[in-house]
Amino acid sequence: MSYITKSPWIIHYDGSSCNGCDIEVLACLTPMYDVERFGIINTGNPKHADVFLVTGSVNEQNKNVVKQIYEQMPEPKVVVAVGICANNGGIFKECYNIQGGVDTVIPVDCYVPGCAARPEAIIDGVVKGLGILAEKREKLRQEQLAAKSGAKAAPQAMPVLDDPAEAKEEEA
């Protein structure tokens, strides 16, 4: 867990799930499993979120909602597909209104299996996702540093925040 240096915020969207995974996601936040001890908070606002938890598969009506929530989240971001339905459609795969897993619409970084996914598995998946998030953050920082030192006039997707620790070293 040593790589968790920030408090990752989560946004949860119910694709076309049966509620089973949703109540298990909520159960993760409550005293028994208590992910808040890792600083993980469930937020309703996609612009505050680092991790996108999707339960249930994607259909015609909600695929744009999923896409829009994903696009609104700031970089770097991680998508965790919770439950077999979000992975590939699961038991509902053959239904006429099911398009398939979440990865048919947005890129997924971490797949959590189960029907319904157990809270332990969900926490495990989110923690794996956080590792990926840290990697992505580092990559983004490298890219932006390269852009900063190279072509200064190039437009940046996001302002580079100097790491206070590094700044101190430079001063010294």
Binding site: N59, E60, Q61, Y96, N97, Q99
Partner: peptide, 8 residues
């Protein structure tokens, strides 16, 4: 109900 195909 918005369905992928009309009147399934």
């Amino acid at each position: 109900f918005k369905t992928a195909e009309p009147t399934p």
